[in-house]
Simulated scan of single mutants.
Amino acid sequence: MRITNNMMTTASVRNINKNMERLSKAQEQVSTQSKIQQPSDDPVVASRAIRYRSYVARVEQYQKNVDNVTSWQEVTDSALSDLSDVMQQLKELVVQGSSDTLSDSDLAAIKEDVTQLQQTAIDTLNTSYGGRYVFGGYATDEEPYSMDADNNVLFKGQLISDFNDNGDEQAIKANIGYGTSVTVNVEGQDVTGMGSGNLFDTFAKVLDGLDSGDVSELSDTLDAIESNTDTILAAQADLGARMNYVSMVGKRLDNDYTTYKELMSNNEDVDMAEASAESATASTVYEASLSVGVKVMSKSLLDYLA
Rank of each mutant, 00 (worst) to 15 (best):
N65F: 01
S283I: 00
F135A: 05
M1Q: 12
D162I: 07
N151Y: 02
D41A: 05
A79Y: 10
N198M: 10
K35H: 05
T120H: 07
T70V: 00
N164T: 07
N17I: 15
R132G: 05
D254K: 10
A282T: 10
L159I: 02
D256V: 08
V246L: 03
S146I: 09
L125K: 12
T140H: 14
D150G: 00
V86G: 01
R14Y: 06
E217L: 10
L159Q: 08
D303P: 04
S196L: 12
L253T: 03
Q88G: 13
L290A: 00
V69Q: 13
T76Q: 09
S103C: 11
G195E: 14
N5H: 13
S196N: 09
N164H: 12
N126T: 02
M20R: 15
Q116C: 01
K251M: 00
T101P: 05
S227A: 14
M297K: 14
A235E: 10
T101F: 01
S300T: 13
G167L: 06
G213S: 03
R252T: 15
D41T: 03
M87T: 04
Q63F: 07
M1T: 08
R2F: 11
E28V: 02
D211V: 05
R58W: 03
V13C: 03
K64L: 12
N65S: 12
M20L: 09
Q236T: 06
A280T: 11
S298I: 01
V270F: 11
R242Y: 05
N65A: 09
I232R: 11
L23T: 02
S181I: 00
Q37F: 01
E217I: 01
M20P: 01
P43G: 04
E274Y: 06
G177L: 04
A109K: 08
P39W: 01
D123H: 05
V285C: 02
Q89I: 15
D201W: 02
T120N: 07
G209T: 10
D150P: 02
K251A: 02
G179R: 04
Q88R: 15
F163W: 14
G136W: 08
L93R: 06
E143S: 11
S227M: 08
N126K: 06
G240P: 08
T183N: 11
A275R: 07
M1N: 14
Y52P: 12
A108I: 03
Y145C: 04
L233K: 03
D214A: 09
